[in-house]
């Protein structure tokens, strides 16, 4: 049944439906509804919630709980996600699957609390130290946030990688009707033959990211790279909207993609053929889809739209590879562009 859900609370309930029983968090605006919801809801379903002393501690509790085989999650917003980066690197290194939510706010530093997409680089290009990636999803609606949170735990377990979902304050705070998928039976989840659970009949299980021997570590790096390659093949997700006859193609993700859609509808009313490529996964990036449209003669240019001073635009340029102009439209500091702004931008730049 559909209910009117606040984004943050819907994410929390979707995680529980997916079998998440361990949540560790620390207060920071604009994601507080996630830990608040988890604090009473996990209690109802026999799980465990800890308000950690810091984001640093919270992500390491995730490392412990997920390393011990539980489905574990943490959530935060930009400055807090920076603090978690050490732990995320360890999770990636030790191949401990988990789900991390970043409801981005504007930065750098303490910045502001209004919507932003300034953590694109951090989320997709590493964030922590070392040679690793998280799978990064950027849902654009509350229903999509729910559906991706729900499957993120399976995806994380399948590849043994941390999965990050990034949204912004807008998606966390807004309400939309959404339906939570059915509650999974946690006893029927696939067994984790690597998790520490004292149940291994004499052979030690070890959660570890230290590999002091160069050859051993290189082998591990290659192994991880192979996993990322497989992820790129199988998990890349992208939506195209009215691209087939489009002369102007917006590239945007998350809530900004929705603003682009509204402006495309306006532009088309005036006979201007605009379309949208919306990456749903930011890592792996839908390079092939963008490259495909870059080759089309009808396409005049790409306009990357972000709540930043220009981060994803670099990946768009790599994908377009010089075949078409790639322009950038951004707002920052927590300001959000309006559909009319983009309509004006396209009309003036024609």
């Amino acid at each position: 049944m559909k209910k009117l859900w606040k984004g943050n609370e819907a994410i929390a309930e979707a995680a529980i439906a997916a079998g998440c029983r361990y949540f560790f968090g620390y207060p920071i605006t604009p994601q507080n509804e996630i830990p608040e919801y988890m604090s009473w809801r996990l209690n109802e379903v026999g799980g465990s919630f800890v308000q950690a002393e810091s984001e640093v501690s919270a992500i390491n509790m995730v490392y412990g709980a997920a390393g011990a085989g539980g489905r574990a999650m943490t959530s935060s917003s930009s400055p807090g996600i920076s603090l978690k980066q050490e732990g995320i690197s360890y999770l990636a290194g030790a191949m401990v699957p988990c789900v991390i939510i970043n409801m981005m706010r504007s930065g750098p530093g303490l910045g502001g609390i209004q919507p932003s997409q300034g953590d694109y680089f951090q989320a997709t290009k590493g964030g922590g130290h070392g040679d690793y990636h998280c799978i990064v999803y950027a849902p654009a609606s509350i229903q999509e946030f729910v559906d991706i949170t729900y499957k993120a735990f399976d995806t994380a377990d399948r590849y043994r990688v941390p999965v990050m979902l990034i949204g912004d304050g807008m998606l966390g705070q807004m309400m939309e009707p959404a339906e939570i998928p059915p509650m999974k039976n946690i006893n029927r989840l696939p067994k984790k033959d690597w998790a520490v659970d004292c149940n291994n009949g004499g052979t030690q299980r070890l959660i570890n990211s230290i590999k002091i021997d160069a050859n051993e570590l290189e082998e591990h790096n290659i192994h991880l790279a192979q996993i990322y390659e497989e992820i790129a093949k199988k998990e890349t997700e992208v939506e195209t909207y009215l691209c087939d006859d489009a002369e102007y193609i917006f590239v945007a993700y998350g809530s900004v993609a929705r603003i682009c859609k509204a402006s495309i509808d306006e532009l088309r009313k005036e006979g201007i053929k605009a379309g949208l490529i919306r990456p749903i996964t930011l890592y792996p990036y839908p390079t092939k889809t963008i490259a495909k449209y870059a080759k089309k003669r009808i396409v005049k240019k790409f306009v990357t739209v972000e709540l930043s001073m220009g981060q994803m635009v670099e990946d768009v340029r790599l994908a377009v590879n010089g075949k078409k102009p790639v322009e950038f439209y951004g707002r920052a500091g927590g300001n959000v562009m309006m559909p009319g702004d983009l309509v004006k931008y396209i009309k003036e730049g024609k």
Binding site: S57, A58, N60, M61, G64, A66, G70, V196
Partner: peptide
């Protein structure tokens, strides 16, 4: 101590 906290919640 944080890792142990997480482990103990599961086991």
């Amino acid at each position: 101590p944080s890792v142990s906290t997480g482990v103990k919640r599961v086991h």
